[in-house]
C-alpha cells in the first residue's frame, strides 16, 4: 500500500463519464467483459459493457503489454531484389485498462523488471508508456485466491495509476497514485459528487495459505536435488496453461513464419513446462524429465527471481490453480515445502 497523492470521491455514473471522455480523446478502453461466464479484457465502447461482478479475468493484464503473439519484423523477397525488411505494424495504441485487479497490477513490477533488465524491450516499453491502469479493489474472491500469502491485498493500490475503492451505490473513492492517474482523474471533472457517506464495499477476505515464503526460499536454496520434485511432478501433464495464464510468467519464443516469398518474425509466449523448452539443437535436453521442469517453475518464482531481483515472481492470483487440468495446486506445493523446511 502506498499513500495516494490525492483522493477523489465520485458518485454513480463516473465510469460512463470516464469512458465517454476517453473515447472523445481517441483512447482505447479495455475492461473486463463477461462472455459465457468468464471475464476477459475487451475493448469497450460504453461503460455498460463492463462486467459488474467478476473475480478476475481469465487472461491476466500482462497480455495487454505482452501479447501472446506479435509480429516483430516483416520480410519479403521480390524477384531480382534483395530481401526487404520492414518493421511490423505494432505501434503502441494509447490505452486505458479499466478494472484490473491488484494482483495483476502487482505483477507488472515483475514484467517491468524483466523487460528492462539488461535490454530495454522496445515493444513492451512503448506499450507500457501508452497504457494507464485503473485498478479496482476486489470485493469478492474465490478459494483459489491467495494474494495475501504473497504480500498483496484485495485492496492494494500498488501498481495502479488510479485506484478504485467501490461504494455500494455505484460511487467510488478514487486514489490518484501518480501523474498518469492525475491526468485520468482530470477527465472526471464535473462527475456527479457522491451522495451520503463514503462507506466502501468491504474488500474481499483472502486467506494467506498455510505456507511461509521465507521458509520456502530457505528450503529451495539447498534442495535442488530432492525426491520431493519427483513426487510433486508425477501428476503434471506438461501443458502450458499455468504459465500462459500466469500474470508474471514472461518467457517467449521467436519464430519465423513465411512462404517462399514473404513472411514475419514473431514473438510468442513460451513455457518451461514444455518438454521442448530447453531442448538443444544437438538433441540434448538439460531438463529431460517433468520433475526438472516443474522444479524450474517453482525455483524461478520463489528462488531465482528473488536472488536476482529481490522479489517473488508470484502474486497469488490463483489462476494456475483454477486452470490446472491435473489438479496441481501451487498453495499445496508451497505448504509442503514449508513443512519440509520446518
Amino acid at each position: 500500500m502506498t499513500d495516494p497523492r490525492e483522493k477523489l470521491v465520485v458518485g454513480a455514473g463516473w465510469q460512463e463519464k470516464l469512458v465517454d471522455a476517453l473515447h472523445g480523446d481517441n483512447v482505447r478502453v479495455l475492461a473486463p467483459v463477461l462472455t459465457e461466464g468468464t471475464a476477459e479484457f475487451r475493448e469497450i465502447s460504453a461503460a455498460a459493457e463492463m462486467a459488474t461482478e467478476w473475480i478476475n479475468t481469465r487472461t491476466p493484464v500482462k497480455a495487454v503489454l505482452f501479447p501472446r503473439t506479435e509480429a516483430l519484423v516483416e520480410f519479403e523477397r521480390r524477384p531480382g531484389e534483395d530481401v526487404q525488411f520492414t518493421a511490423a505494424d505494432n505501434e503502441a495504441v494509447p490505452t486505458v485498462v479499466l478494472g484490473a485487479r491488484p494482483c495483476d497490477l502487482n505483477a507488472l513490477d515483475v514484467l517491468d523488471t524483466v523487460f528492462n533488465w539488461d535490454y530495454r524491450d522496445k515493444l513492451y516499453a512503448e506499450r507500457r508508456a501508452a497504457t494507464t491502469f485503473v485498478g479496482v479493489a476486489c470485493t469478492r474472491s474465490d478459494e483459489a485466491c491467495f494474494c495475501t500469502g504473497m504480500g498483496g491485498r484485495a485492496d492494494d493500490n500498488e501498481g495502479s495509476d488510479l485506484f478504485v475503492r467501490p461504494m455500494p451505490d455505484g460511487g467510488a473513492v478514487l486514489e490518484v497514485m501518480n501523474e498518469r492517474g492525475a491526468a485520468l482523474a482530470k477527465r472526471l471533472d464535473g462527475a456527479a459528487p457522491a451522495v451520503g457517506t463514503e462507506e466502501l464495499v468491504p474488500p474481499a477476505q483472502v486467506g494467506a495459505g498455510p505456507f511461509d515464503t521465507e521458509k520456502v526460499k530457505e528450503w529451495l536454496d539447498t534442495h535442488f536435488d530432492d525426491d520431493f520434485w519427483t513426487d510433486m511432478s508425477l501428476k503434471c501433464l506438461g501443458c502450458g496453461a499455468c504459465s500462459y495464464l500466469c500474470p508474471t510468467c514472461h518467457c517467449f519464443d521467436i519464430v519465423d513464419e513465411s512462404d517462399w516469398r514473404k513472411g514475419q518474425r514473431r514473438r510468442n509466449w513460451d513455457c518451461c513446462s514444455f518438454a521442448q523448452f530447453t531442448k538443444h539443437a544437438s538433441g540434448h535436453n538439460p531438463r529431460p524429465e517433468q520433475h526438472s521442469r516443474c522444479r524450474n517453475r517453482i525455483m524461478h518464482k520463489f528462488k531465482y527471481f528473488i536472488d536476482r531481483f529481490g522479489r517473488k515472481a508470484c502474486v497469488g492470483c490463483g489462476r494456475c490453480i483454477r486452470v490446472c487440468g491435473a489438479g496441481q495446486d501451487l498453495v499445496d506445493i508451497l505448504a509442503e515445502i514449508t513443512t519440509a523446511a520446518s
Binding site: 487472461t59 501472446r68 501433464l237 506438461g238 501443458c239 502450458g240 496453461a241 504459465s243 500462459y244 495464464l245 519464430v255 513464419e257 510468442n268 509466449w269 513455457c271 514444455f274 521442448q276 486452470v323 487440468g325 491435473a326
Partner: peptide, 29 residues
Amino acid sequence: IRCYACRQVCPLCYCKQCVVEKNIPQWVE
C-alpha cells in the same frame, strides 16, 4: 492460447514429437 493442455491430457496423444513441434518444414504454425 496454444497451451496444448488438450494434447497433454489426452491419453491417445502420445507422440514423442508432435506435428506442431516439427519445424522443417513448419507444418503447423
